[in-house]
């Protein structure tokens, strides 16, 4: 069913926000499972992708604020459970929380897979994230034409996260959204960084970086792309060795409930969930009118990282040889 009115467009943008967020926990689990000083190339790739996913959340939030809808982040249900499909997708694959591994990379590649040339926009039950965004872009353009820009872009400029200030550590930058042109530019940045620009392996940023899909493809093939390589040719450059053997053996899809019988571990998991929930609350504040609150989100991110890494060192009593890991659950009491 196509997007026919502004409310439906706003709902779809909220869904986009949930989709972007849904990619972050699996990437963070892989990243934090890599001990410092090992798999440096892989860690750097995953870190750059996860930074850009955070950028995508901001970009979507800017579009939402511009079209008069407040993003909802710090709420039960915003985090979708793992294992599970990407929210609002066609359920064609299951996203899991895994340590850095071949299994994790296969999921990452499915998340970031490029749409086939000519694939239709899909506002519901999308196959690729790109097709979902295409439906949003189409609706945004159509509704702006039908209703007039002043009826669509009703947000306050002060609510927009500005460029060059709070976002760093990854490619691209924040686009403040005030009209159709900037809205489309913001959404294009999201899809270009993910699946590549116009069916190339590049993300279209000035920095000439690979799109996420192809960065992960390098890791799976353990080989780098050369500039002349294409999606079809695959990577033909130098070796890019990875070592799965040194990774923290996190038990897949941690859930705090699984550890109820182990209060000391349960307590540590709850601690992690509360930090993560505090982070969502801080983002909620920042993305609903006070962008400068993003500054204080950063220390919470570090706090979460340290707790996640600590959890990955705790041996799991449920599966000998494995460790516990962060469970990314919303905690009302945070």
């Amino acid at each position: 069913m196509p997007i026919t009115d502004l409310k439906s467009l706003q709902d779809h943008l909220q869904e986009a926000l949930e989709i972007e967020h849904a990619t972050i926990p699996p990437y963070l689990c892989a990243l934090y499972s890599i001990p410092e000083g090992t798999n440096r190339e892989a860690a750097s790739v995953i870190r750059s992708v996860v930074m850009e996913e955070m950028l995508h959340m901001i970009l979507v939030a800017n579009v939402m604020n511009a079209v008069g809808r407040k993003p909802v982040i710090a709420k039960e249900g915003f985090i979708k459970p793992y294992p599970g499909p990407l929210p609002h997708s066609d359920d064609s694959f299951v996203v899991e929380l895994l340590p850095f591994s071949e299994g994790a990379l296969n999921i990452f590649l499915k998340i970031e897979r490029p749409a086939k040339a000519g694939a239709p926009p899909q506002p519901e039950r999308f196959h690729t994230i790109g097709q979902f965004y295409e439906a949003i872009e189409e609706a945004l353009t159509r509704l702006t034409k039908e209703m007039g820009p002043s009826k669509v872009f009703t947000g306050k400029e002060a609510e927009q996260v500005p460029p060059g200030r709070w976002y760093y550590g990854g490619g691209g930058d924040v686009v403040p959204v005030t009209n159709l042109e900037s809205a489309l530019r913001a959404l294009k940045e999201v899809t270009d960084e993910g699946e590549g620009l116009d069916h190339t392996i590049w993300d279209g940023d000035k920095s000439e970086e690979l799109a996420h899909y192809f960065r992960f493809a390098e890791l799976r093939e353990q080989r780098s792309f050369l500039p002349e390589d294409t999606e079809k040719s695959g990577p033909s450059g130098p070796d890019l060795p990875v070592d799965f053997g040194v990774v923290a053996p996190m038990r897949p899809n941690p859930r705090s409930d699984d550890y109820r019988a182990h209060p000391a571990i349960h307590r540590q998991m709850v601690k992690g969930n509360r930090i993560y929930t505090r982070l969502l609350r801080q983002l909620q504040t920042a993305l609903t009118g006070t962008p400068d609150a993003l500054r204080d989100a950063v220390p919470i991110m570090y706090e979460f990282r340290y707790q996640a890494e600590a959890l990955m060192r705790i041996p799991s009593p449920l599966s000998p040889g494995m460790t516990v890991g962060p469970s990314f659950e919303f905690d009302q009491n945070a």
């Binding site: 750097s44 750059s48 930074m51 760093y168 550590g169 990854g170 490619g171 920095s207 970086e209 220390p299 570090y302």
Partner: peptide, 17 residues
């Protein structure tokens, strides 16, 4: 124009404490 760490991208674009 903010600088990244020498020989890599997107590292060190802010003091991390």
């Amino acid at each position: 124009a903010l600088s990244s760490a020498y020989g890599t991208k997107h590292v060190g674009e802010r003091c991390e404490g």
